[in-house]
């Protein structure tokens, strides 16, 4: 009989949302301002396809709510939503596989951890300067142009990981975890 685990799913959803917001923050689309204010600035909507680097797009508006500033880029939001959704699905699937391996006849308890790999990759995909500043390794900048390609790599790995989880019995998002 299926056992519903709404708490685990809610946690996965929250983690996915946090991941999407974290992605936008690392990208620079979400940032802070030392001078709090409330304003909405509308930019040139024709710039929505312009790229800053590969897979990072220009904003067409800017919202400042207190100390929080949000550069509104439709395509960056779309990518963040896709990454967040896939990450949540992976967390949910990993949790299901971790908790119920015997009942589902699974052979590898650690298989769900594969989901963490693309997440790490996506985390580094956000902003080359941020990553370089964080790591502070001279010469690493030679590879800065490659960092942006971690975004599609993450998407592919997250999709592959989810597919792997489903093959091993992880339930779809809309269905309760088996118990």
């Amino acid at each position: 009989m299926a056992r519903v685990t709404p708490d685990a799913r809610a946690v996965a959803a929250v983690i996915g949302l946090a991941y999407a917001l974290g992605y936008l923050y690392a990208l620079g689309d979400l940032s802070t301002a030392p001078q709090p204010a409330w304003s909405l600035t509308v930019g040139d909507p024709a710039r929505w396809l312009d790229q800053r680097v590969v897979f990072q797009f220009e904003g067409i508006g800017m919202l400042q709510a207190g100390s929080l500033v949000w550069l509104i880029s439709p395509l960056n939001i779309l990518i963040a939503a896709a990454l967040g959704l896939l990450f949540a699905l992976n967390v949910d699937g990993a949790w299901a596989l971790w908790r119920q391996p015997a009942a589902c006849g699974m052979t590898s308890r650690g298989g769900g951890l594969v989901a963490a790999v693309p997440a790490l990759a996506a985390g580094g995909a956000c902003c080359a300067p941020s990553l370089l500043l964080l790591l502070g390794i001279p010469g690493l900048g030679a590879f800065a142009a490659l960092f942006a390609w971690l975004v599609p790599l993450s998407l592919v790995l997250l999709l592959a990981s989810r597919w792997w989880q489903r093959r091993r019995g992880a339930p779809p998002w809309g269905r309760a975890h088996p118990g």
């Binding site: 220009e58 904003g59 941020s130």
Partner: peptide, 12 residues
């Protein structure tokens, strides 16, 4: 500037 940037923050 017509371009959306958070000018209150320096990325570096």
């Amino acid at each position: 500037t017509g371009i959306m940037r958070n000018y209150q923050q320096d990325p570096y």
